[in-house]
């Protein structure tokens, strides 16, 4: 039996608002990447997607600001006044901000189109990659292993393509199913990459939900009409669940 005088600060530190951010940043990053590609191809839907990208990034940044306990201290300015390349969140801040700027310029038709589209593509890759990296760098949390660095960009692309499919873009369905298949495969293999204790924790805390999201994802391969919704829910659910349950440290102290 272990008791404490005072308590280690072992509680949950990222709450539902942070989980919402992990979903929104995936949506925003995925849409930004698609927008960059559409602009490069000179696709007629590019402008509509640019607006979606702007809205999703703005929404994500608003959620980040609103949920931050430092929101009225305006300390966020330090993200852009300092240089911390070892921090995934520093990269993510720049990735999102510059994606927003380049998408804004593209939407307004200001500046050179192709370089801006290439810039948007590059910045969106940063925005796609950083959430998984922000988790994977925490070697002390066994559920956030290196697989996060692959699973989070993949699910972000699924989220972007899911929205594209809902926007009735016919080209979105095939890549959506391919990337969702890859995501589900990774998610299926993920428990096998965990130490026994961590696997047990995942099973106890969220085994049913995890299985449900995997099954939901499979629904995308059943009917075309279901595919966008099934993919969106499965990708969003997996992202939120992994962030929530991964905060466990498995303290063998």
């Amino acid at each position: 039996m272990t008791e404490f005088y005072g308590l280690p600060n072992a509680g949950e530190f990222w709450h539902w608002t942070n989980l919402l951010h992990f979903i929104l940043v995936g949506l925003a990053g995925g849409m930004a990447l698609l927008t960059g590609l559409l602009h490069l191809k000179g696709h007629r839907e590019a402008r509509r997607y640019t607006l979606w990208t702007l809205v999703l990034i703005a929404l994500d940044l608003f959620v980040l600001w609103a949920e931050s306990p430092a929101r009225f201290r305006f300390t966020h300015v330090w993200l852009f006044l300092t240089f911390h390349p070892a921090s995934p969140i520093w990269w993510g801040s720049w990735g999102l901000a510059l994606s927003f700027v380049s998408a804004g310029l593209l939407y307004l038709g200001k500046g050179p189109g192709r370089p801006l589209a290439l810039a948007l593509l590059a910045f969106s890759l940063v925005a796609l990659a950083y959430p998984g990296m922000a988790l994977a760098v925490n070697l002390n949390r066994p559920l956030w292993n290196a697989l996060m660095a692959g699973l989070f960009p993949l699910t972000a692309l699924v989220l972007g393509l899911g929205v594209a499919a809902l926007l009735k873009s016919p080209w979105a369905l095939y890549p959506l199913r391919v990337l969702l298949g890859a995501s589900l495969l990774l998610a299926f293999l993920y428990p096998l990459t965990l130490p026994l204790e961590a696997r047990g924790h995942l099973w106890e805390e969220s085994g049913v939900l995890y299985g449900l999201f995997l099954a939901l994802g499979l629904g995308a391969f059943w009917k075309e009409g279901l595919a966008p919704w099934a993919a969106l829910l499965a990708a969003a659910g997996l992202r939120a669940l992994l962030v929530a349950v991964g905060q466990w440290q498995g303290l063998g102290l």
Binding site: S68, W78, L79, I89, V137
Partner: peptide, 11 residues
């Protein structure tokens, strides 16, 4: 300078 992002708490 802290924005309370929680990255250090996680680490």
């Amino acid at each position: 300078k802290c924005i309370a992002c929680g990255a250090c708490i996680a680490a």
